[in-house]
């Protein structure tokens, strides 16, 4: 792979805290290597800001391997930037060229208030999981693992749904700020497995109810979530959630 260096202009959202008014600031960075990750480019910028006696830009990140779901930048109008199936931390600078201007914003959604700069509050996702994203089994109750064979195809589908990293890009990408892709991934994982069966109806109802309560919008099937999801969680999960939800609605009318 050929390497090159580039000079860039960055327009970055700055906001002191939840209640403050935010706005864009413009920065320039020089000699950015195409081998850097996008967040390493931000490290360079922050180091530069600190050396100039200015405040660095606050952003969330941890694993930098595309798995923790912490990084969350809206880059040039796209959640996690231009590469498909890629988190912000795995985006590399060879996606850009010398002279580019890059606009970076936080996730925009009512249910994800900005805490500072590019950092948002995603605890609504935890509360949705609390509403039913589990199998009610206490430690110590389990039978031998191989007493429960699972159809490989279904196990693979469950795994694909379980790969969701809870990053919130689906919400940020959606014009309605819907969290359906996230919720459907968890509901699907557990609905596809025999372990999840006993609670599948209450799970779907309760998780959807919590999602509504948190102020996420409704799903109008535009598919932007799937397109921006770094783990390529499939829209078929939303279809499955809808089936689960409708089925649960009918049978729980007591």
């Amino acid at each position: 792979m050929e390497h090159y260096n580039m000079n860039l202009t960055l327009k970055v959202w700055k906001q002191q805290n939840k209640n403050a008014q935010g706005g864009f600031e413009t920065y320039s960075v020089k000699d950015i290597s195409s081998e850097m990750s996008f967040l390493e480019m931000f490290d360079v910028l922050n180091e530069q800001l600190i050396n100039e006696g200015k405040e660095p830009i606050a952003f969330d990140h941890d694993c930098r391997e595309g798995i923790c779901g912490m990084c969350s930048m809206h880059i040039n109008g796209r959640a996690h930037g231009p590469w498909a199936g890629t988190t912000t931390c795995q985006l590399h600078m060879r996606a850009f060229k010398d002279g580019d201007t890059i606009t970076v914003e936080p996730w925009r959604a009512g249910a994800f208030p900005v805490l500072k700069d590019l950092t948002v509050d995603r605890t609504a996702f935890d509360r949705i999981i609390e509403a039913g994203g589990y199998v009610s089994v206490n430690t110590g109750n389990a039978q031998d693992a191989n007493c429960l064979p699972v159809d490989k195809h279904k196990a693979d589908l469950a795994f694909a749904a379980a790969a969701c990293i809870g990053c919130g890009a689906c919400v940020a990408a959606c014009k309605n700020s819907s969290a359906m892709l996230f919720v459907s991934a968890k509901v699907s994982q557990l609905a596809l497995l025999p372990q999840g069966d006993p609670e599948r109806q209450t799970r779907a109802l309760n998780m959807v109810a919590q999602m509504d309560k948190e102020g996420f919008g409704s799903c109008t099937n535009t598919g932007a979530c799937e397109a921006e999801c770094p783990k390529e969680i499939s829209l078929t999960n939303i279809a499955r959630l809808n089936r689960e939800f409708i089925g649960a609605g009918f049978s729980s009318e007591k």
Partner: peptide, 23 residues
């Protein structure tokens, strides 16, 4: 160690499986 696998499977952890449905 064996109990851990049992516990995780009971929680719905989607471990890799063979065609026969076993782990």
């Amino acid at each position: 160690s064996g109990n851990i696998i049992d516990q995780c499977v009971a929680q719905g952890v989607p471990f890799a499986r063979e065609y026969g449905g076993l782990l």
